[in-house]
Design a protein around this nucleic acid. Structure first.
Length: 865
DNA sequence: GTTCTAGAAC
DNA sequence: GTTCTAGAAC
């Protein structure tokens, strides 16, 4: 019966951090956290508005420019998403940048212009560069962004994907993000034909932003000369092959025309043309708008083509006049949007008052730690969305709503949280954002939030600034007195609930019954307990803070998580309808499925995909319905056998392994382990014992790479390991160590790790014994590298320890494979390398101490033990 | 696990 | 032409 039930895919739920690459990185080695070049914590300006609200720390817009390899001005700052490899001086993308774009620093003193707006503060345009390799697109961008009058973002496809070449879709996403933040965007890619430009024009049209084109119509000879001199160009357009590529690209060139939707097209053939156009766009601002039309030197054929195209489309009317009219319409529309009711259409999830029904408990809360405490916005948004997701899952169907509030419609946090919430599929009925004053929600017609959160300080004192000062001021001295009765200080990552006294204006005017003080992590060196850029700890504390806040909210609202009894009631209610009678467990699963929280296990099984299912919070239900129990021993454990396993700190949990289909190619180790005498000759079996065999990996990923394969039938992978296997794991480890000692005798310079893959491709539990040189021709792919250097590789000693203490291995879950797709990071110096060839070159010379494990085995450690 | 192929991009 | 990625097949 249990096997018929659809189960959640992960014990941490559909929105488990392990599914989120950004958050996943937090579980990378602690030493991987981004650092500024100087090693000093970032000291971003505190752009605090005068009205006591949360200031906007526009990390992206206030950051210094980011630069790719081929265009990096050597004398400019590099922000914390980039780091320089001290060994070879390369600039490499840090792991925190999933997609990399370059942005100008803001040039104005006011928040208004820092944030910008396509409506008024800036003349926002989408500038599409058109030109073959070597035409000077990158130089154009560098010059444009060096001292532009308004903020620009450069989208360079060559470096957008963690410092290497990405896709058009990534460029589009980043362009949209920047445009929505009020930044002009320059698209640095060839854009050589209509198809390559089409999506960008559509994007601009959708956002009601003018598209401009600058055609770098540089003679092919010059392009080839330039490209030939380049080295290590991402697209391979350098050296001897540059001419062929450029000639081919130029042959496919389609000259941009106004009828594609461009507002303005500028042609540049010689350097002075380029300089002139660069200056035009550098000067661009509302008081210096550029006229529509076609400008610059071009040949007569191009001009005729462009004008004819425009004339045909507009029925003989000058394209320029049509576009001017359109421009006026856009401006008028933009004006309407700006004067609307304070909700910003850019925030798709902005909750309007009508969305919230009085009587339902609603928590209004500010973004924690992103103002004075200078926590990185992107990371904070990721943590927040994760916490909301968990909250929604835990308190489904009980009417609790969360509203993230910020004072300004230009709030960076509102924008990115909305985006991430949408991406994560958060329930828009129970979470939204709102632009307004958190202390005046009722009186200003905002959502009726009777509980509000305060981004407090550790002393729980009024003052300082931002939300804390505003709430204490609005509440009057009564709140401070009430708070004193509850606590005198507050730990980071925790919260306290204070009932707002009846006499407080916040209560009798705004209807706020409770204030929940919450304290997040501090990244501001000017404030106490600064974490100095330690985002591993910081995210942990922030997560604790939000979790504590939301739990306090639930506590005040006097609701409880969805539990067995409530689900049972739901089941009974469901059974009152005509459908088949369902038990509580099935009802829960059906509800989860409706919310999209349950994977289609059956269909995945049909496809032979790996299916590991861990469910949460249903153990009592399973017991109640007699659908499972703890395994008594290790007798099960072949494919297709469901099993249940016990508790951990999160709460009572059930671990259930569902059928995994092993393809024929993945059975090689299984066959050899069970029948070592029949091992194919290509496999070098070194030792056979009663419990394991030792063999050389057929495709070694390092100088020395052995496998110690268990001979216990049914023990396919780590997922199958239980407490009773601890002794076996220790024997396997010892066997591996024996061979390590032998290797080290011959070559004492080697360093080894012993460990398991979280989600192995080959059936039959096997320990990897691998030297850390990774000097092997068989190491070809990112997946290879990350399987041995990311947390996907579980150290044998850690595995043994976990099995002994908790009875199973808490591996990376169903999303372990995401770890394999992460950036290529040197296991010594932590620098990111753009591809495998570059990585291999780098690691062959990198001499930093190894930093990828606490369990490295060296000649001295073996001799000393 | 590997190998092969196609496609995208410059 | 080269590099990289994703997917299919084994």
């Amino acid at each position: 019966m249990a096997s018929e039930v659809k189960l959640p895919k992960c014990k941490y739920g559909e929105n488990c951090y392990r599914k989120n690459p950004d958050h996943l990185r937090l579980f990378w080695h602690p030493s991987s956290r981004p650092e500024s070049i100087s090693g000093e914590p970032s000291t971003k300006p505190n752009n605090k508005p005068p009205n006591g609200s949360e200031p906007e720390n526009q990390s992206s817009s206030s950051a210094p420019p980011r630069h790719g390899r081929d265009v990096t001005p050597k004398d400019e700052d590099v922000d914390d998403e980039w780091e320089i490899d001290a060994d070879d001086g390369e600039v490499t993308a840090c792991s925190e940048a999933e997609e990399v774009v370059e942005e100008t620093p803001t040039t104005s003193n006011s928040d208004e212009s820092i944030l910008g707006t396509r409506d008024s503060a800036n003349a926002v345009v989408l500038l599409i560069l058109v030109g073959p390799p070597g035409s000077g697109k990158s130089t154009f961008c560098s010059k444009l962004m060096s001292s532009a009058a308004q903020p620009w973002t450069r989208i360079c496809q060559d470096i957008i994907a963690k410092g290497k070449r990405g896709t058009r879709q990534q460029c589009l996403r980043q362009a949209e993000s920047a445009l929505l933040r009020g930044r002009s965007v320059v698209i640095d890619r060839c854009n050589i034909d209509k198809k390559q430009r089409e999506d960008f024009l559509k994007l601009a049209s959708r956002l009601k932003i003018n598209s401009h084109a600058v055609v770098l119509d540089v003679p092919p000879r010059i392009c080839i000369e330039r490209a030939t001199k380049r080295i290590a160009h991402e697209g391979g357009v350098h050296g001897g092959n540059a001419a062929a590529v450029i000639n081919r690209v130029i042959r496919t060139r389609q000259v941009p025309s106004l009828d594609e939707g461009f507002f303005r097209i500028s042609f540049c053939r010689i350097d002075p043309d380029v300089e002139k156009v660069i200056q035009e766009y550098k000067d661009l601002q509302p008081s210096k708008l550029l006229d529509p039309g076609v400008f610059g030197a071009m040949n007569k054929g191009q001009a005729r083509s462009l004008l004819n195209g425009g004339k045909d489309q507009y029925g003989g009317v000058s394209p320029t006049s049509v576009i001017r009219d359109e421009m006026r319409n856009v401006a008028a529309e933009a004006g309407k949007q700006q004067s609307s009711n304070g909700s910003d259409s850019r925030h798709g999830r902005t909750l309007r008052p009508a969305n919230l029904v009085p009587g339902e408990e609603t928590l209004a809360f500010p973004s924690i730690s992103t103002a004075d405490f200078q926590f990185d916005h992107e990371k904070a948004a990721t943590v927040l969305v994760q916490c909301i997701s968990e909250f929604q899952a835990k308190y489904a169907h009980v009417g609790l709503k969360l509203v993230l509030v910020d004072l300004t419609s230009k709030s960076h946090m509102l924008s990115i949280v909305s985006k991430k919430a949408s991406e994560e599929g958060l329930d828009g009925n129970t979470f939204g954002t709102f632009v307004g004053d958190i202390t005046k929600l009722r009186s200003s017609g905002g959502p009726p939030c009777n509980i509000i959160a305060n981004a407090a300080n550790w002393r729980l004192k009024p003052g300082g600034g931002g939300v804390n000062a505003a709430i204490y001021k609005a509440a009057g001295p009564e709140l401070e007195q009430a708070t004193k009765k509850v606590a005198s200080t507050l730990q980071a990552g925790s919260s306290i609930v204070v009932e707002v006294p009846q006499a407080s204006a916040l209560r009798n005017q705004e209807g706020v019954t409770h204030v929940i003080h919450v304290l997040g992590p501090n990244m501001n060196p000017q404030r106490p307990n600064c974490l100095s850029g330690d985002y591993v700890e910081g995210c942990k504390v922030l997560r604790n803070a939000y979790t504590s806040l939301f739990e306090s909210f639930a506590s005040v609202a006097q609701v409880k998580p969805v539990k067995a009894d409530s689900v049972k009631r739901m089941g009974e209610a469901g059974n009152s309808h005509n459908g088949p009678k369902l038990n509580a467990f099935q009802v829960l699963m059906q509800a989860s499925k409706r919310k999209g929280e349950v994977g289609d296990t059956a269909s995945k099984r049909e496809k032979g995909e790996k299916v590991r299912v861990v469910e949460e919070g249903v153990a009592s239900l399973r017991e109640e319905h007699g659908e499972g129990g703890r395994p008594s021993d290790a007798t099960h454990q072949g494919s297709g056998h469901a099993e249940v396993q016990g508790n951990n700190s999160v709460g009572q949990q059930v671990r259930k392994k569902v059928d995994r289909k092993w393809d024929s190619w993945s059975l090689a180790l299984y066959k050899i382990a069970l029948h070592p005498d029949d091992a194919p000759s290509k496999n070098s079996v070194l030792e056979v014992t009663d419990f394991a065999i030792v063999m050389e990996d057929l495709y070694p990923k390092a100088k020395r790479h052995l496998l110690v394969v268990s001979r216990t039938q049914g023990l396919d992978e780590l997922e199958d390991v239980r407490r009773e296997h601890a002794g076996l794991l220790e024997r396997i480890h010892s066997l591996g160590m024996k061979h390590v000692a032998s290797f080290l005798k011959h070559d004492p310079s080697l360093v080894f790790r012993l460990g398991y893959h979280s989600a192995p491709s080959m059936r039959q539990l096997h320990l990897h014994v691998i030297s850390q040189d990774f000097d092997s021709a068989s190491l070809k792919h990112k997946k290879h590298w990350n399987s041995f250097t990311s947390p996907f590789f579980r150290d044998s000693l850690d595995v043994i320890s976990e099995v002994k203490t908790q009875g199973y291995v808490d591996n990376c879950g169903p999303n372990a494979e995401k770890l394999l797709d992460m950036e290529l990071r040197c296991h010594r110096c932590r620098s990111v390398q753009p591809n495998i060839p570059r990585l291999k070159t780098h690691i062959s010379t990198c001499n930093r101490p190894l930093s990828n494990s606490n369990h490295l085995i060296t000649a001295s450690s073996v001799n000393g033990s």
